Amino acid sequence: MFIRTESFKDFTRYYPIITGIVFIHIVLYLLIVLPFFPGGLIFERLAGVNLYIMEGELWRLVTPIFLHSGFPHLLFNSFSLVLFGPGLEHILGRKSFITLYLSTGILANLATLFLKPLTYTHVGSSGAIFGLFGIYLAMIFFRKEMLSRENTQVVLAIVVIGVIMTFVNANVNVTAHIFGLLAGLILGSFAIERGRELTSSFQRITKRTLHSSGGPKKWSPTSIMLAVLIFLALIGLLSR
């Protein structure tokens, strides 16, 4: 479920919502870092600044979900979305997926607004990413049949490591991570009722993709989990 074997063309066809979100991540990042664009102005207008939100700039509850402060930040969040998002885009359906993704991100930003100082500034899709983890937790708690034992172990390991890194790393919006996770768990518990049929559809797509790519890659669930954890650890070091 978390192994990506598709070609780029197949990935964009099967998961257009995730493709679109990552595309927006990259475009906004390039607009900020390339010297011939007014990157500073773009960042200032789109970043989440609690004071400006309180003054009526409500778009800042949404735009930080797509904005990142550096390449490691962009890489980690986009990688996480590509790794954990495809299953949910098919299990939930495209409309429900984007609705939940944005809802968990906005709720994480609202928690940041009410619990952080007015001068607090934040960017990043981490709250929405943790919302995806929360949706997977809802499946584990309320619809165990939707995930295999191996996938359940991977999700639980990633959630535990993610929460630990949230409190260990500097310059992390702890409020957004925790409330994004809780929002995903709560909202996801209502959204997974139609999951069985869509899960079967996702499995059929995965089998077709594996067949067209010459069969599954030789990655065990343990090696996948280890690779992801190493990646997370490296990103944690880079983000300090």
Rank of each mutant, 00 (worst) to 15 (best):
L75F: 15
S126T: 04
Q203G: 09
S220F: 06
G236Q: 11
G214T: 09
L118R: 15
P38G: 09
R4L: 14
L83C: 08
L181G: 02
V159R: 01
N171K: 01
I91V: 13
R4C: 10
L226I: 15
I235D: 06
V154I: 15
F141W: 10
I224A: 01
N77C: 09
V174S: 05
I158Y: 03
E150V: 10
T19W: 07
F66C: 03
T222P: 07
S189N: 07
G236T: 10
S189R: 04
V160R: 04
A157Y: 09
A191S: 14
I32F: 04
I24L: 11
V154F: 14
L232F: 06
K95Y: 12
H177Q: 12
V154N: 07
A111Q: 13
L110D: 04
K218C: 12
I235E: 08
L237R: 11
T104S: 07
I98M: 02
F36N: 09
I106W: 09
S96D: 04
W59S: 01
F141K: 06
R94V: 00
L110Y: 00
L83W: 08
L102H: 04
K116R: 15
V27P: 02
A111G: 15
L46R: 00
F71R: 05
I18H: 00
A47F: 09
F2A: 04
P117T: 07
G215N: 10
L198R: 15
L110R: 07
F8R: 01
R208L: 14
F179N: 06
